[in-house]
Amino acid sequence: MSVAGNVLIICYGNPIRGDDGAGWRAAELLADDPRAVGAQVLARHQLTPELAEDVSRASLLVLVDASEEPGVAGSVSVYPVPDSPKAGSAFSHHVDPTHLLQLAATLFGQSPRAVQVSIRVADIDPGTALSAPVEAGMPMLVDAVIDLINQHRQRCA
């Protein structure tokens, strides 16, 4: 059963592939951020079907990831998770955000409103450090997630 105000933040990526580890860095920052108190923060390499139950219990799901979409490195995008999966997306041990929401609804009866927050990468070569532009963009990424949490809480109040 989801509870109004229950916020689940799943930060994902590969922490040893440079900027693809932005999600893990965000998870660290959000876990220490007093503005995010009460939200559940998970760091994962990928989205997997095992997350469906946790997702079903949330009233807001925020997915934090690195993006290879064209744009300025370190810039942040916020957009709702689409209802339809990307064309050609395969279904294996990891799932895309849309499939994860569909699994939550199918197996556990409900899925939350879901928003993706992505930061554009500069370098995803092997390494544990973020590039300078992505590191500089992390505060903006965290603020974007906090804004979503605050908006959601106001809506639920």
Partner: peptide
């Protein structure tokens, strides 16, 4: 070996 986080699609 699939330890790398994939960005993209896997068409057949």
């Amino acid at each position: 070996s699939c330890s790398t986080h994939a960005i993209g699609e896997m068409p057949l």
